[in-house]
Amino acid sequence: MTTKRANNVTLLIVLVTVVAVMTAAMPDQFLRLGNLQNMMRNLPEYALLAFGIMIAMTIGGIDLSGVSVLSLSGVVAAMILSHHQEIPLPTVVTMILAILAALGTAALCGLINGLIISLASVPAIIATLGTNGLYYGLAIGITKGSHLGGFPLAYIRIANNDFLGIPIPFWVFIAVALLLGLLLDKTALGFQMKMLGASPVVARFSGTKNRAVLLKSFVIISLLAGASAVLLTSKVATMRPNYGQDYLLLAVLLSILGGTNPDGGFSSVLGVFLAILALQVLATGSTFLGFTPFFRNFLYGLLLLVVMVIHHYRDTGAWTILKESVFTRTEKSG
């Protein structure tokens, strides 16, 4: 447990260092209110996907279909919103309808994932690779690949307005993080999810209804993707099926950075929360430095691998051996 908490402390140190370096390097660019607000507006859409991956890893699986659930539910919401003038309802009602439709679509996708995994014993990797193609194909089929726009202004305001100086998407992000923290650490379902991830057989023999836990988990994961779709469509005011398709790597990276065990059984909402903040600061910094998106992807890939290798050394105890050997060597030479 101490190493896991140490992970969050490390992340906090990384975050503070990165912010300090950015501020020192670009004082008039980085610490500007506009820039901070921009960062807070941009990160929630992939942060919610990262929390989804975190939950999937906690129960010992993975969800590769999150980005496509985002596509599909975004398209569903956009279809309602782009026809808001033809729908004989007040705009607010249409908006609520669109949001509910997005979340409903997402929940349905999650339910399908969960059913395939629990009823047919299909490993989550394979099941979600398959449904990923299915949901994305559906989004492409509905839209013919083109984009949908013409949303009501009030809807666009959701993600582009601030409350107490902080963008609304960031409030959503904080609320989701708090709820997930409560879910994982304070509820029976959270405990069952971790147990399922640590050992499905033990969970089953301790009276956990594995199938119910799996279904609930995958519905929650997809609901997060659906919420992300609402934030994304509201922020950019249009929707295209390929929006958000790049977020898979980022979401997995953030989940791993946050200390989630990809083999299941352990995760820390606080860890993933800190990882999200740290990486967004880095991403903003890399934009200021003029990095291309390709180079950023390259760095994300590299970072993911390096972090996993470090975790390997930490978990196998090789890290301590290395530290001790360095320590004794300096002692001898001194």
Partner: peptide
């Protein structure tokens, strides 16, 4: 990466796939 550090193949190849392709384009 997969054998030496006992890492999950899916996540490793997701990472290297971005490493290879991002590196190529960059």
């Amino acid at each position: 990466l997969i054998t030496r550090f006992k890492l999950p193949a899916l996540i490793v190849t997701l990472g290297t796939s971005n490493l290879y392709h991002g590196g190529l384009l960059q």
